[in-house]
Nucleic acid binder design. Structure first.
Length: 766
DNA sequence: GTTCTAGAAC
DNA sequence: GTTCTAGAAC
């Protein structure tokens, strides 16, 4: 290894090409890794996948080698996307290295159970290795795995043990510029003693009929991306032999039979459909009658699913229980879409890692003090989420009354967030029928049922309120927005087609909230806890939304701009009258400093076209102008970067600008400015309200329109750091945090050139 | 868009 | 008492 080190260090500045040999079992995410790097990349990469090398069909190792050599000759970097778990399988690819080519290894050494659940899920599409067999194969492969060493000829080896390591590596490679080199050596932690766990999926003791149906029918909605389905590739051809030899070895092993059956549940890990997992409320420790409870659950689920599209609810219990079967049969009787509601057996805090079931939000059957401990689900969730949940909960509410729910965003530091992808926990308190517990209703089931119904309403509305923030599900936009996936949790909230019905639902809700007889439970769930984001704020904002919608729908009416909102318009029309403030004038655009800059550098690029006030009426005919604005913005960014290479920029539009005349914000992401004073300022640049220019252009190219997120709610969202996503109670605290936060930017921002930064800084920021 | 300021939150 | 937010006026 020392030899390698010397070679690379002497040639450090030459901008060598790289061959990255991925090492990982099927299901470890190799292809996804490549895709993520390539989508962020600043220099050309070629992914060589034995599985698809012959016009989409599988090929030979020799073909891979020659394609790799060719790509290197063209000056491209290369991914070798095959399992490469054994030294011998890697040897020939390592030989691609030389004077001008470095060979790196990226080891996706993720938990075996995760690889297995993913790969088992994927074989359904491939039809090669079926269900349990795939599990055996992966198991066996992992047992044979030999982790790469520098001595094999690698100059750099990166070990990834979990998703966050993987993201780190994606950032590192994705951020490489053509002349950049990475330091040689070992990176990340190597865990050699990891033993493969057999029978990992006994957790799924029973496959719900509903779940199975879901897997079979759900291809369109619960789509597994193509490259994922290809994960078991011919580079694992060795493994097919293993399959046959191993297959019998495991037959008759009941645990693994269970595994096989249960694993198939993993395939419903539906990326893209926001999912709420919830326990049955009140039926365990609070001793609520299960028969009655199951009626309420089914009724509330049905009601919610009718109102909100494209979401999924999963009732979870640790064991196959009476309540699960009651609910299942009642849901079946009511013909509730099994794709959208199902039951599941397992630990609600391990649904993804143990079962491949992605749940963005989980509900907690909380106690009234909202404290950890006790037993059951509450103890499990608090312990799995770590102290971060307790702290975040405290920020939101001190206690909870029966029938109410409180939505708590999970800090990204929580293991539940990092490992399971859970973004929010919703605490719910149900009615209590247990004399040993507080607030016992003494068998008053009239009241009990009402409160339990309220509890579920609160829970589901809380879930919906999260969606409305994260996916604009309620916006009723009638077009498919760009379905790029994004940061860890946003992945789960992939944007989807929303329909008019949902849009109407949103406005129905507004009317409802404006009415005098508000349902306190619902109110509570949406307002978070104690009115911080108060009901009135919500109704006001919703009202605003309806109003602006009317303008759009009615078409004829135009937004009326106040006098103060005309300033940019005047400058755009007569830049010569504003020579002092204008930095650049052309026929199409005017550039000026924002009068109240919200960061060290904050420019506006104005469109000069009369009547082009905002993105609301943008269309394909404006494409060229938008591209010009973007290009001019980038030009200025480059000049700023040459003065200060530590800056990072974003270029984009406000979905609902306050000032007339389309203006592109070019802003450095330090947000170090005294003019940044309030929530609206922050959120207008750091939520979906801000539309990156590059995305707007892409959407117009694809759909002729841009999706706008002009929901006022976005502007009153809690304050979160744009880097580490931590939440802060007020602007001063946020500002003091961001002045120090050096966390890498979230993956969403790192993709698609949304960030513009100096080439020399690429690694640091990523 | 900002400024001003009452009053909520701490 | 001080800090901070949010609504109204411009």
């Amino acid at each position: 290894m020392e030899v390698d080190y010397e070679i690379t260090s002497t040639e450090e500045k030459t901008g060598k090409n790289i061959v990255v040999i991925l090492v990982g079992a099927p299901g470890s995410g190799k292809s996804t890794f490549c895709e993520n790097v390539m989508s962020a990349a600043r220099c050309p990469w070629v992914r060589i996948c034995q599985d698809t090398i012959t016009n989409g069909k599988s090929g030979t190792k020799a073909q891979c080698l020659s394609s790799a050599a060719e790509a290197l000759k063209d000056g491209k970097n290369v991914f070798i996307d095959r399992c490469n778990l054994e030294k011998e399988q890697r040897a020939e690819f390592v030989k691609l290295g030389g004077l001008h080519v470095d060979v790196h290894a990226v080891v996706l050494d993720l938990p075996a159970k995760l690889c297995i659940s993913r790969s088992v899920a994927r074989t359904g599409h491939e039809g090669k290795l079926q269900g349990g067999k795939a599990a055996m194969v992966v198991n066996r492969m992992l047992q044979k795995k030999e982790l790469p060493k520098l001595g094999e000829g690698f100059s750099r080896i990166t070990y990834c043990q979990n998703e966050s390591d993987v993201q780190g590596a994606v950032n590192t490679y994705g951020g490489l510029g053509p002349l950049d080199t990475l330091p040689p050596g070992y990176f990340g932690e190597e865990k050699r003693d990891a033993k493969v766990q057999l029978g990992i999926m006994k957790f799924f003791k029973k496959v719900d009929a509903i779940d199975t149906a879901m897997r079979d029918k759900n291809c369109s909605q619960v789509s597994v991306s193509e490259q994922e389905t290809k994960e078991i590739d011919p580079s694992c051809k060795e493994t097919e032999k293993i399959t046959s030899s191993v297959g019998n070895e495991y037959e008759g092993n009941t645990e693994d039979q269970v595994l096989l059956e249960g694993s198939s549940v993993g395939s419903l890990s539906s990326k893209g459909v926001p999912t709420l997992a919830f326990p049955s409320i009140s039926t365990s420790d609070f001793q609520f009658n299960k028969e009655k409870a199951s009626d309420i659950i089914v009724e509330k689920v049905e009601e919610f699913l009718k109102k909100v599209g494209n979401v999924r609810l999963v009732l979870v219990d640790l064991h196959e229980s009476n309540i699960l079967s009651l609910v299942r049969s009642k849901a079946e009787q009511k013909n509730i879409d099994s794709k959208r509601f199902s039951t599941s057996v397992g630990d609600i805090t391990r649904l993804y890692t143990r079962g491949g079931l992605r749940c963005n939000v989980i509900a907690n059957a909380a106690n009234w003090r909202l404290k950890p401990g006790g037993g059951g689900v509450n103890a499990t969730i608090f312990s799995a989420a770590g102290p971060a949940l307790e702290a975040a909960t405290k920020e939101r509410a001190g206690s909870l009354s029966p029938g109410k729910a409180v939505v708590v965003p999970l800090p990204s530091t929580s293991p539940l967030f990092k490992e399971e992808g859970v973004t929010h926990v919703i605490h719910v308190l149900g009615p209590n029928m247990n004399p040993q517990r507080p607030n016992c209703l003494k068998n008053d089931y009239d009241k009990g049922c009402r409160i339990l119904g309220e509890a579920y309403s609160s829970l589901f509305e809380g879930f919906a309120s999260i969606l409305s923030i994260q996916t604009k599900l309620w916006k009723g936009s009638e077009e498919v927005s760009g379905s790029r996936s994004s940061e860890l949790h946003e992945n789960l909230f992939e944007r989807n087609i929303t329909n008019k019905r949902e849009g109407r639902y949103a406005s129905d809700r507004i009317k409802k909230y404006k009415g005098p007889q508000e349902e306190s439970g619902i109110q509570h769930a949406i307002s978070g806890s104690n009115g911080k984001e108060s009901l009135s704020a919500m109704t006001d904002s919703m009202e605003g939304k309806v109003q602006s919608k009317n303008e759009k729908v009615d078409g004829g009416k135009r937004k009326v701009w106040s006098a103060w909102a005309q300033a940019l318009y005047h400058i755009a029309m007569h830049p010569e009258k504003h020579k002092n403030e204008v930095l650049e004038i052309s026929d199409d655009i005017v550039v000026l400093n924002d009068h109240y800059p919200k960061a060290q550098k904050h420019l506006l690029v104005l469109a000069r076209m009369d009547g082009f006030d905002s993105l609301v009426n943008v269309g394909a005919e404006h494409l060229q102008l938008l591209k010009t604005m973007q290009a001019v913005g980038l030009k200025w960014v480059q000049s700023f970067l040459s003065d200060d290479a530590s800056l990072v920029f974003r270029l984009g539009y406000h979905s609902a600008p306050s000032m007339r005349q389309l203006h592109l914000h070019v802003i450095s992401l330090d947000f170090n400015s005294n003019h940044l004073k309030n929530k609206k300022h922050w959120n207008s640049f750091n939520t979906a309200f801000f539309r990156d220019s590059i995305d707007v252009i892409e959407e117009i190219e694809k759909y002729g329109k841009a999706t706008l997120h002009d929901d006022e709610k976005l502007l009153s969202m809690e304050l979160r750091c744009h880097r580490c996503r931590s939440a802060h109670p007020n602007i001063p605290r946020l500002k003091s945090h961001i002045s120090n936060c050096q966390a890498p930017f979230p993956a969403t921002l790192l993709q698609n050139d949304r960030l513009v930064l100096a080439p020399s800084q690429v690694h640091n920021k990523a």
